[in-house]
Design a protein around this nucleic acid. Structure first.
Length: 271
DNA sequence: ATGGTCGGCAACCGA
């Protein structure tokens, strides 16, 4: 069975619902993972997604900030929400795809929204950066994020770290910019290594090819300078790594009317 | 070197 999985930081799902619908009609992903929905569960546009073909939704939203969701055309086996750093700020949701959807060997799918970390890359001066580092430490320590032991798994999301030199427009100029500082890059790669995760995107677009998924709202013309970063990720357990047949970064959505600052990233897998 | 732009929600927070 072939499935396509999309991850997209949508920066308000209600504000950009028509753009999401346009993407769905064009790409028709089986599973859609959104971050920064900024929408409490009781206000989520569930009917619109149902009309677009997604009968099943696993929601973890709140008012105003953060929020993640997984939408699927088929039923989930189970849904799990984990809180990190003692906060219930809607940055994680996991679902299991299994029997009910015709999958003999189940797959756990994690959808993350890692804290951005503020501007100052010093945890003693900036509580938001300290929170980001602690969040990555908890991910590292989380046994449920170790598919090497637990079986088939996919991890997607806005991880808010561009870990490789070719994940940013200028490695040197971003060394002290939050999202590409060595400490957070090391921690994210540590999470990856501890779980035996394979970076599915970099498997298809290997170093040193530059690849970005986010461009700041603050640059007046993002296409001219192309000063982007790869903050959005799709990882698979080693058992699924050779099942990834394609990766697509839908860059053109950054040029949409009223765009998100992130673009959709889609993986195609034979499961 | 600095400030630049978003969305939520109604003054700033978080990004």
């Amino acid at each position: 069975m072939q499935i396509t999985v999309t991850t997209w930081n949508i920066n308000s799902v209600r504000y950009r619902i028509d753009l999401v619908a346009k993407f769905i009609k064009a790409v028709r992903p089986d599973i859609l993972c959104l971050q920064e929905t900024k929408c409490p569960d009781n206000a989520f546009p569930i009917k619109r997604f149902r009309r677009l073909g997604y009968e099943h939704a696993a929601l973890n939203g709140q008012k105003g900030y953060h929020g993640v969701v997984v939408l699927w055309r088929r039923p989930f086996e189970s849904k799990t929400i984990r809180d990190y750093c003692g906060k219930s700020d809607c940055r994680h949701i996991a679902v299991t795809l299994g029997d009910a959807a015709g999958l003999k060997d189940p797959i756990t799918l994690h959808n993350f929204y890692v804290p951005a970390g503020g501007d100052i890359p010093d945890p003693s001066l900036n509580a938001k950066f300290a929170h980001k580092l602690a969040f990555l430490d908890e991910m590292h320590a989380d046994a449920t994020l170790r598919p090497a032991a637990a079986g088939r798994a996919i991890m997607v999301g806005d991880l808010n770290v561009a870990p490789l030199e070719c994940d940013v427009w200028s490695h040197k100029q971003l060394l002290s910019v939050v999202s590409h500082t060595p400490v957070e890059c090391d921690k994210l790669l540590g999470v990856q290594k501890a779980g035996g995760w394979i970076d599915a995107v970099r498997q298809k677009v290997p170093e040193p090819a530059r690849l970005f998924t986010w461009w700041s709202y603050r640059s007046p013309d993002w296409t001219k300078s192309d000063r982007g970063r790869r903050l959005d990720h799709i990882w698979t357990s080693a058992t699924l790594a050779d099942r990834v047949s394609a990766i697509a970064v839908a860059r053109e959505y950054r040029s949409a009317e009223r765009p998100s600052d992130h673009v959709p990233v889609t993986a195609t897998l034979d499961v």
